[in-house]
């Protein structure tokens, strides 16, 4: 038996199967990583590893197990979409851990989180005093959402009556010397305008451009391949290479 060859074939099947199944599951798995999602992900990974390397059993058996896990995961996603009640049964409900600066011990006990862990989660949300908290909620994915008391909320532009400007995204126009016509069109610009902008900045050829974009404030951003950076800010202690 050519074991290396068999492993290459099985590993290739596993690799592309995982890629395909990950696309089928969608982005939800990464966004809302509940305990179940976490364990499910590990189990799927473990089955995939066995599919690739365990030659003592048929590849098909593990492939079927992998497929069943993915089908059930997708099925649960759909059930969650169709029924809010069943979705809550799957993922549990958010739990209030703090209200008006008070720690709710009963709820902490219910979700088995210590006060130290609660404080750590608050600090990671830039809340360094429990007094600042109006309400703190433990989400089903294990993250803490904190609503600060009104006194501790950051000032918004509208509070100061500063006129609002429309928000936009940075639009990439050139990446690695290649123009992206769709993005140019999106910001109502054309290639002539782009070439003019490059000429103004002393760029003779598109090959010189590493990255160019139109910023939200309509400013043109350019990064050339040649960075012309001096050695002043070199943080390395030795010549290298390492």
């Amino acid at each position: 038996m050519q074991e290396s060859l068999v492993v290459i074939v099985r590993a290739s099947i596993t690799f592309f199967t995982i890629l395909l199944y990950a696309r089928l599951i969608g982005k939800q798995l990464i966004g809302n990583f509940t305990m179940f999602d976490y364990i499910n992900g590990i189990t799927i990974g473990s089955i995939a590893a066995t599919l690739a390397t365990d030659l003592s059993s048929k590849a098909l058996v593990h492939w079927i197990a992998l497929t069943v896990f993915i089908v059930l995961t997708i099925l649960l996603q759909f059930i969650g979409l169709k029924s809010r009640y069943l979705s809550k049964i799957q993922d549990s409900e958010p739990v209030i851990l703090m209200q008006k600066g008070n720690i709710l011990e009963k709820n902490l006990l219910k979700v088995r989180i210590t006060k130290d862990e609660l404080m750590q989660q608050l600090r990671s949300k830039d809340v360094f005093s429990p007094v600042e908290v109006e309400i703190a909620i433990l989400e089903p994915d294990g993250t803490l959402s904190v609503l600060p008391k009104s006194d501790y909320q950051t000032v918004q532009k509208k509070d100061l009556h500063v006129p609002a400007e429309p928000v936009k995204l940075t639009t990439e126009l050139i990446i690695d010397g290649k123009v992206i016509p769709q993005n140019l069109e999106q910001r109502q610009k054309n290639e002539d305008w782009l070439m003019d902008q490059l000429k103004i900045r002393g760029v003779k050829s598109l090959k010189e451009v590493s990255y160019a974009a139109l910023l939200p404030n309509e400013m043109f951003y350019l990064d050339k391949v040649d960075d012309n950076i001096s050695d002043d800010l070199n943080i390395s202690d030795y010549d290298g290479p390492y």
Binding site: M1, Q2, V6, R10, L55, S56, S57, K58, A59, L60
Partner: peptide, 15 residues
């Protein structure tokens, strides 16, 4: 035959 079927059967069966 061994070369043909090695991708789909258990190693123990071949052995």
């Amino acid at each position: 035959i061994k070369i043909r079927i090695q991708y789909s059967v258990e190693r123990e069966d071949i052995v």
